[in-house]
Design a protein around this nucleic acid. Structure first.
Lengths: 361, 361
DNA sequence: CTGTTAGCGCATTCAC
DNA sequence: GTGAATGCGCTAACAG
């Protein structure tokens, strides 16, 4: 039943401080035009009464909205690497909140809907910039955003057409390290159970997988793509392992696929790592908790998030202009039991840097 | 280098349609005062030019901001049941996006900062309502929000003081089912490794744990609280199992704790479920993927999210007023190997409803 | 049914 | 240094 006090306006503050609205505005925005002491007085009054500028009014007069948009176009089912995403968002917030930026979040179910959201956000002046995730093959979003003139940064770029700045992730080197690891532990035939090839980063990984295997001189290297679902991963695993000359090591794109794959491996009566070694491209709790613990690529989702947010802030500040991309550091491969088999103890070369192996297959 | 067209205003649309600004406003807002055919024409023009009202301008003239706020006050470390939270948010979005509502997200590191965020959002008119999560003991937030006059709904209430509507979760019945399950499989001494007692729902579970154990007549029932960290869960597990008369079943509050606990159990040379049975209060991929698979409480985080969002929409609509709380349905206990021991095959009673057991301990 | 007018809360020209 | 006047884009009173 409390009568809520009517919202306090700048005018009220000015009145209470005994100055003009203009003076109050200048003072509260740190602009010249007021004496130091009246400025102090005005600030004190505002502080005392807990005044806060009306956001809409500021935006209407041309101020930034102090809001960053993020839209996620994944079906509820495959919010897939949930863990990765949550940590990524936490990383984003770690720098955004420090800068007083808010995060406007939207989940949609198609790229078209996503672009429409950008359009509306832009026309309605709701966000200053957006963060683009899950870049796809022939993705229309970077161009759409660039055409809109909406500041943005791609998490996981680079932008194929180079119109948007990005924080890039090197998928090549990690894959190389995985293959190298498998090669040195004696594998000759390896397979990669990846996510949908619609995702740009997946295609990069596939290329790197084949390329790396050829460089190392591995006779067998197979790729089976999935739709990121557990069932498709199980199916892919079954197909790979039921062939006559089956691979001895499997690389999975995330924990969902790995868990499903491991289940299928056992159902086929095979053991890990004795019969088949397993590596997963994401080090979540699940990787270390499973039996056996899974060798995993330890990507730092939090750091990735904060780097992306940092890059975006730089873009908005006008700093780091020139569209320069930032590169994310290469993650370590965390070796665990799932890939400890030592089939053919090979001599480990002094430096695994430039391996000019002979191509095979 | 493209010269971005200046933003289209209502006035422009009116001009293009050859009508007054008022007429256009009425037409575009579905208000009476325009003939059907001119309304059509105006809508057509707006559509054709992709006009979208300036959000700030609408809000400034009293419109709702169409935005729901969510602030999360957890340290980056224990974004704990990440999985649960992500699915919860997806559930929220499933109804919010359908209603054209946006989600403004903020992560802070203290309850004070959270309240301050609410205050600023409210004063700045940034959100129409907020969703309150992780209710604590003696939580100042419900009162703060009620005093602010900010519409809100508590996810996981009820509000102890009854000032805010809530979607309530019954922790008592699930705990009862767990204890019952353990009792019927022959356990006489059980323990509960819970999260921090600062969380209101944890205190409810603790009460239910002791109450249920007494009702069932279990001689032993112990509780060890943790700070939701893996290390504290390991420590709690060690303490519980190194006592002379150690419990034969452990209940963990989430997957992080369970995984840490399981590791410790093995380090102590004990086997699951032979020596110790394990139950986890959250059915994530990890529960079913572990060896052995974990008996788990299958809460539906997505449904919870959509229910909360639905309740909030009802509040905003003025529907379902009277602060009525909505109750979330009770989750099933998914029995898996980790609790299959059958120590003392007891006769299962016809109905496990009203067990007036003799209190013990 | 249409056009005129004023005002939401703030920033920013200008003269004073 | 200060105060009055305008406008951001839109809605909602008015009269015509």
């Amino acid at each position: 039943m409390s009568d809520r006090p009517p919202r306090l306006t700048l005018r009220d503050i000015a009145g209470l401080a005994g100055v003009s609205e203009t003076a109050a505005s200048f003072a509260l925005n740190g602009k010249p035009g007021v004496s130091a002491k009246t400025r102090q007085r005005i600030l004190a009054v505002a502080e005392e009464h807990g005044w806060e500028p009306h956001h809409a009014a500021k935006v209407l007069t041309g101020a930034k909205s102090q809001t960053v948009g993020l839209v996620i176009a994944r079906s509820a089912r495959d919010v897939g690497s949930e863990s990765f995403f949550m940590r990524f968002m936490t990383g984003l917030q770690s720098v955004l909140s420090k800068r007083g930026q808010s995060l406007l979040l939207q989940m949609v179910d198609s790229v078209e809907a996503e672009i429409d959201t950008y359009r509306r956000w832009h026309l309605a002046n709701r966000v200053d910039a957006v963060i683009l995730v899950d870049l796809r093959v022939d993705d229309p979003r970077p161009d759409a955003l660039a055409d809109l003139g909406m500041p943005a940064v791609i998490a996981g770029g680079p932008d194929p057409r180079g119109r948007l700045p990005a924080v890039t992730i090197d998928d090549r080197e990690p894959m190389r390290r995985i293959i190298e690891h498998l090669h040195f532990t004696g594998h000759e035939s390896v397979a990669y159970v990846c996510g949908t090839g619609e995702m740009l980063h997946i295609t990069r990984r596939i290329d790197a997988f084949h390329g790396g295997a050829r460089e190392m001189g591995l006779p067998g290297h197979f790729v089976m793509s999935t739709d990121f679902s557990a069932s498709s991963a199980a199916r892919a695993t079954r197909l790979l392992l039921s062939s006559g000359d089956r691979p001895t090591a499997l690389v999975y794109d995330n924990e969902i696929l790995a868990v499903a794959g491991l289940g299928e491996i056992r159902r086929l009566g095979l053991a890990v790592p004795a019969d088949v070694c397993v590596v997963v491209w994401e080090d979540t709790l699940i990787a270390s908790a499973m039996e056996p613990p899974l060798t995993a690529l330890g990507r730092d989702a939090f750091a990735f998030g904060s780097d992306v947010a940092g890059r975006l802030m730089a873009t908005l500040d006008g700093t780091a202009e020139g569209m320069g991309d930032t590169a994310e550091s290469v993650p370590e491969l965390i070796e665990r039991s799932s890939s400890r088999c030592d089939r053919v103890p090979l001599a480990r070369p002094s430096s695994g840097a430039a391996g000019n192996g002979t191509a095979a297959r």
